[in-house]
Simulated scan of single mutants.
Amino acid sequence: MIDVRRLQLLQALDHHRTVAGTAEALNVTPSAVSQQLASLAKEAGVPLVERQGRRFLLTGAGRVLLERAHVIFAEMERANADLHAYSAGDRGVVRVGAFSTGISDLVAPALARLRGSHPGWNFEVVQAEPESSTEMLRSGRIDVALTMSTSHMPAAGDPEFHTEPVMVELFDAILPYHHPLASRTDLHLAEDLAEEDWIMSAPGTAWYSCVTAATSQAGFQPRVAHIVDDFSAVFALVRAGLGIAVVPRLAWTGLNPPHVVVRGVRDTARRHVVAVTRAGSSAEPLLTAVREAASKVPVPSVGPFAVAG
Rank of each mutant, 00 (worst) to 15 (best):
V49L: 15
R78G: 04
S295C: 10
A145Q: 01
T268P: 01
F99N: 00
F220C: 03
P180N: 01
S295L: 12
T134Q: 10
P258N: 09
Q35M: 03
V28Q: 09
L181A: 06
E292N: 09
V228I: 11
D192W: 03
P304F: 01
G241N: 02
P165E: 10
A206H: 15
E135Q: 11
D229E: 14
T147S: 14
D197C: 02
E131Y: 08
M1V: 12
V107H: 07
V107P: 00
A23Q: 08
A32G: 07
E169L: 12
L237N: 08
R141I: 03
F56M: 13
V168S: 13
S87F: 13
D143R: 00
G60L: 13
V166P: 03
A98P: 13
V273G: 07
E129Y: 05
S201Y: 11
G303N: 01
V274E: 09
A108R: 13
E135Y: 01
L237T: 12
Q127Y: 05
G309Q: 14
Q221D: 10
M1L: 02
E124R: 15
P248T: 01
V93Q: 13
S281I: 05
W198M: 08
R68Y: 08
P257M: 04
V234C: 07
D192S: 07
L111S: 04
A294T: 07
I72Y: 02
T22A: 12
Q52S: 15
G219A: 08
V290C: 01
E169R: 01
I199N: 09
V246A: 09
A98Y: 05
L242E: 15
A44N: 04
R271W: 03
T18H: 02
E135R: 11
H152M: 08
V28A: 05
D3W: 00
S31W: 04
V93T: 15
Y208F: 12
H179Q: 11
E50F: 14
R113P: 03
F99I: 01
S34P: 00
S301M: 10
G243H: 11
D82P: 06
S301R: 14
P203N: 08
D172L: 11
P154Q: 08
L9F: 07
V297M: 06
W207A: 13
P180G: 08
L242D: 12
S232R: 05
E292V: 10
G89R: 15
P176F: 00
E191V: 13
P154M: 09
I2T: 11
Y208K: 07
G219C: 03
L13V: 04
H84Q: 15
G303K: 06
M148Y: 12
H226W: 15
A294C: 04
P248N: 11
E196C: 09
S216G: 13
V228P: 13
R239G: 04
D90C: 14
K296H: 14
I174W: 06
G92C: 10
L181W: 03
A275P: 00
Q8M: 08
R291W: 10
P298R: 07
I142H: 05
A81F: 10
I174L: 06
I103Q: 01
S209V: 04
A112R: 07
R138I: 02
G243C: 07
V265F: 06
R113W: 06
R68E: 14
A69T: 11
L7M: 09
S31F: 06
A32P: 00
F305V: 10
A283K: 05
V71Q: 13
V107N: 09
V290N: 00
P222L: 10
A245S: 12
G53R: 06
V125S: 12
